[in-house]
Structures are given as structure tokens and as C-alpha cells.
Write a protein that binds this DNA or RNA. Structure first.
Length: 485
RNA sequence: UCCAGAGUAGCUCAAUGGUAGAGCACGCGGCUGUUAACCGUGUGGUUGUAGGUUCGAGUCCUACCUCUGGAGCCA
């Protein structure tokens, strides 16, 4: 240990968006520290003294020297280091095995061989921490199932490094999208007492462990509390004050869902706009998805190239298509007609008043329109109380954005802003008005038409990376029976 | 939760009801500006768990567990 691990100061900011900001103040210190491999590989000319720190991906020994491939996760690629016998530290070369951490100093030179532009001719190598022979990540491909069982190590693999770099950049893109449109970021509570909209089974939050007979009045908050299933109702209160707001945070559903697109803990993005109707809501949803696709193409090109090659061959085409073409918009009633006239045999029959099944959604977006599709104006019976009743008295201003391969990515609506109608909606859905007194107050004091939607961040990532299981786009997945890490 | 499929070495997979094997990983030796390096060699197993059928079960039967795909709930 010692010197090798002492420099942990924030390296220079490298986000293109922060290039000229005050965040660059540590830049001068960079030369005293190590250089991220991302910056080494982007060099435009040879350099005399470079120090890199990372984890050994592989070592290939030759007579009299070795190739060490070092990766620090700062970018997709690894740096090939050439270490001659006799280089300080070479006597311990056998310990530089896959997974070991190391510091390498050397000269950056143009590589004489195919496969890489630059390589580091080592002048000194130092082992930081060796990797036990049982290190499970091999140089060969692994199944996603196996990698899930080593979630603490999988970020060191090509795929998961790419996924989580992309996730980070898109999280920033979410904020930039909304902030640049004058939306304010609202942090809605994670612990909540309201059963909200019946959006799903909830996790109970309590300090009454081991006291099964205790009344909820004796609980920490003096009433039953849960982990939030949505920040929407709270976001509405802020939209009715700051005009345009969004949430971006963890959401919890205690459903016993066992699918590739459900998790018990996931991140949801919920914009809410005052003085906005359903059309404006659909516009925002479409713009948002297009902007995310564009951002990924522009800022995650290297990682996307990997996804296109090994995860989803059609990814780049699809993202370009999404960016360039308008989404299809179709009323629910018309969607049902299309499905009925399709001549296609569905496992579940299509009929008005029923929710669209996965197979129906897939047909619309993958076969019929071959495009992301927004379905709107659903029957009120199958949608929550807060959605605005249309003049036909039968449908509500709901909208779902469906994308090929994933299904529903966005669920949203224009909200019911008329106090009497909101009360009627609650009766219709057999809800207790008293439980929503503060929500109803928004309609009592200066009500405005407003609209918003919820978007699953992980589902968005699945769509943008081609990764087909939600467990593989979230760092540590929580699903029924699984919270190991 | 329902339907279907699968659990064999650290990983990926073979094995008619009849002596459990290969590749990779790992160890050792060799070779080479190599790049999923290569060649030789060695180590490595309570066949998911518990029962049952049989002279004999990785293989057939029952239950359970786990995972995968599909469905429901949704984002």
C-alpha cells in the first residue's frame, strides 16, 4: 500500500457540459496524480510520463516482457501496457492477474501493432491489491444470470461498465432536459402515508417490529406509513406553485412481479406541468424520449457501439429512427378497432373496456405502426381517479407511450382539475375523499388544468441500450426474493 | 401468483438406466509484439435439496428450492 493509493482527489471534470465551468478548479493538480485511461487513450501525441491506475483485465507473457491490459472504467477501452523484464516491479509480474489492481508508470507511445493506437511502455509497475485465484470474472463471455450472482463485481465487465456509464450520463441528461425547459426539480418524500392512487402493493415502514399487537397510533409517525409508489400527487402540489416541476427518485412496489421489466425498487421520472393539457403532455413525453435517444447517440457513442455489436444489432438504427420520426398517436378506441380488424389471432380477445394486453401493445408498436406509439383517451373504468373525465363522459385523458421491445415506458394524464368532478371520480372509484383532502384543496384554491406523466428510468435505459432485463440496468436489483447486495 | 423450460467442476456445456467428460478458468512447463494469445501437462464433482422405483439413477417418478422465458400487476 502506501503511495500507490493516496491520490483520491477529484480528477478534472470531463463532462462536455461542464467543460468551462467552475468545476474545473482541480485541473492543475491533475499532473501530480494519475491520469484516467479515458484521457490517455484520447491523446493526440506521445507523452513522456504517464501514471495510470486500474484493474488488470488480462496479462499475456512473452519471453522477456509482458502485456498488461489495464482498465479503470473511465471509458470502455483498456490501455495496453508493455512491461519489459527488468522494469521495477517486474519480479512480481505473476501477481498481476486478471482482477488485480495496479499502478503503472510509463511512456505513452504509438503502438507498433494492430489493435490499439496507443500503448504504455512501463517504467515502473506496482501492485496495489492482488486478485485471488478464485476471481470469477474471466476473459471469456459470461451469462447475464451468472453476472447477476456477482453483482459486486459485474461493473468490471465490459457490458456492465458500459451500462452504468450510460446510466450515469442519462441521469444527467434527464436533469438537463427539464432544467433547460424551466422545470424545477422537486424531491418528493420516500416515506408516505397516502396510499396514493392504488398504484400497487406498498412496503410498510414501521418501528413496531416484534409488536404485532401495537396500534398504528403508537408507530413512529402516528399512522401507517409506506415507501412511496409515486411522487405524482406531491408533484402536483408543486406544479400548482412553480408551474413546471419534475421528480427523479426511487420508487417502490411490493408486487410479486417476476418479469424482465419489473423491479421492487426502481427510479421514476415524473414531470408535472400547470396550464397544460393532454396534447401538451404527449408532446413532452415524445420530446423527452427523443431527447434521451439523441443524447445517448451523442454522448455514449462508444458504449452504444458495444451494445449494437453484442446486445442488440438493430440498436443504432432504432435510436436514429426514434430521433427522426414522429411517434404515432392513436386514441384507445381506434387502437381497439385496429386490433380487431388486424385478423391476427391473440391469446386474449380484444374488446372495448379492457386493458390492452402485452401482446396487443406489442402488435401495435412492433408490427402495425412499427414505431413508438402513444395511445390516449382510455375508458375511465380502467384508469385511476385523478385522470380528467372527457366530455364523452366515458373516457379519461390518459396516455401511455409504448415502445417496441419494452412496451409501456410512459404512463400519464391530464389531471382532473374540476373540484366537483374530482369528488365524483373518487366516488366512482370508491375512494375516501377524506384521505385526499390536501389533494382536493389544490382544486379548491386556484385550480388550473395540469398534466404530467411517470416514466421508468430503467425501462428507458433498456430501450436505449438494448439490454432486455431490468435487473441488468440497475446497479443492485431488488426483485421478489432477491436483495443480496 | 399462473404456464412452460432448465439446474452436472469456479464458468459454459456433454454424457441409450450400466466406470461422470470436454473447453475455458486456475497450477506447472514451453513458445511467441501479444491482444478471448498459443502448445503440453496437472488439479478440480455429495450431478439443486429430500424422498421413491430399480440389481444399478446425472438419466425414470413425487415434493420442494432456485433460475430463465411467457402471462398478470405496472413504470
Amino acid at each position: 500500500m502506501g503511495k500507490a493509493v493516496t491520490s483520491h482527489r477529484t480528477p478534472k471534470p470531463t463532462s462536455p457540459l461542464r467543460a468551462n465551468s467552475a468545476f474545473r478548479q482541480h485541473r492543475e493538480l491533475d499532473s501530480l496524480m494519475h491520469t484516467l485511461i479515458k484521457n490517455v487513450l484520447a491523446a493526440t501525441e506521445p507523452k513522456d510520463a504517464v501514471t495510470v491506475k486500474g484493474w488488470v483485465r488480462t496479462r499475456r507473457d512473452a519471453k522477456g516482457f509482458s502485456f498488461l491490459e489495464l482498465n479503470d472504467g473511465s471509458c470502455f477501452g483498456s490501455l495496453q501496457c508493455v512491461v519489459d523484464a527488468g522494469t521495477p516491479g517486474y519480479d512480481g509480474i505473476a501477481h498481476f492477474t486478471t482482477g488485480a489492481s495496479a499502478v503503472i508508470e510509463g511512456k505513452l507511445v504509438a503502438s507498433p501493432a494492430q489493435g490499439q493506437k496507443w500503448e504504455l511502455r512501463a517504467t515502473k509497475i506496482e501492485l496495489i491489491g492482488e486478485a485471488d485465484a478464485s476471481y470469477p470474472l474471466q476473459k471469456k463471455g459470461h451469462t447475464l444470470e451468472f453476472l447477476r450472482s456477482i453483482a459486486h463485481l459485474r461493473p468490471r465487465s465490459n457490458l456492465f461498465g458500459a451500462v452504468f456509464r450510460t446510466r450515469s450520463r442519462l441521469a444527467l441528461a434527464v436533469h438537463e432536459f427539464f432544467q433547460s425547459r424551466d422545470f424545477f426539480y422537486v424531491q418528493t418524500p420516500i416515506i408516505t402515508a397516502s396510499d396514493c392512487e392504488g398504484a400497487g402493493e406498498m412496503f410498510r415502514v414501521t418501528t413496531l417490529m416484534g409488536k404485532p399487537d401495537a396500534k398504528s397510533e403508537a408507530d413512529f409517525f402516528g399512522k401507517p406509513t409506506f415507501l412511496t409508489v409515486s411522487g405524482q400527487l406531491e408533484a402536483e402540489t408543486f406544479a400548482c406553485a412553480l408551474s413546471n416541476v419534475y421528480t427523479f427518485g426511487p420508487t417502490f412496489r411490493a408486487e410479486n412481479s417476476n418479469t424482465a421489466r419489473h423491479a421492487a425498487e426502481f427510479w421514476m421520472i415524473e414531470p408535472e406541468m400547470a396550464f397544460c393539457d393532454l396534447a401538451g403532455d404527449m408532446d413532452l413525453g415524445e420530446e423527452f424520449i427523443k431527447a434521451m435517444a439523441r443524447y445517448a447517440l451523442e454522448h455514449c457513442a462508444e458504449d452504444l457501439a458495444f451494445f449494437s455489436k453484442f446486445v442488440d444489432k438493430g440498436l443504432n438504427e432504432r435510436l436514429k429512427f426514434v430521433v427522426e420520426r414522429p411517434f404515432v398517436r392513436v386514441p384507445y378506441t381506434e387502437a381497439v378497432e385496429i386490433l380487431n380488424k388486424s385478423g391476427k389471432k391473440f391469446e386474449f380477445p380484444v374488446s372495448y373496456g379492457q386493458n390492452l394486453q402485452s401482446e396487443h401493445e406489442r402488435f401495435l408498436t412492433e408490427e402495425h405502426f412499427k414505431s413508438p406509439t402513444t395511445v390516449f383517451n382510455y375508458p375511465r373504468e380502467i384508469k385511476p381517479f385523478y385522470m380528467r373525465l372527457n366530455d364523452d363522459q366515458k373516457t379519461v385523458t390518459a396516455m401511455d407511450v409504448l415502445v417496441p421491445g419494452i412496451g409501456e415506458v410512459i404512463g400519464g394524464a391530464q389531471r382532473e382539475e374540476r373540484p366537483a368532478q374530482l369528488a365524483e371520480n373518487m366516488k366512482f372509484h370508491k375512494l375516501n375523499e377524506q384521505d385526499y383532502w390536501w389533494y382536493a384543496d389544490l382544486r379548491k384554491y386556484g385550480t388550473v388544468p395540469h398534466a404530467g406523466f411517470g416514466l421508468g428510468f430503467e425501462r428507458l435505459l433498456m430501450f436505449l441500450t438494448g439490454v432486455s432485463n431490468i435487473r441488468d440496468v440497475i446497479p443492485f436489483a431488488r426483485t421478489p426474493g432477491n436483495a443480496e447486495f
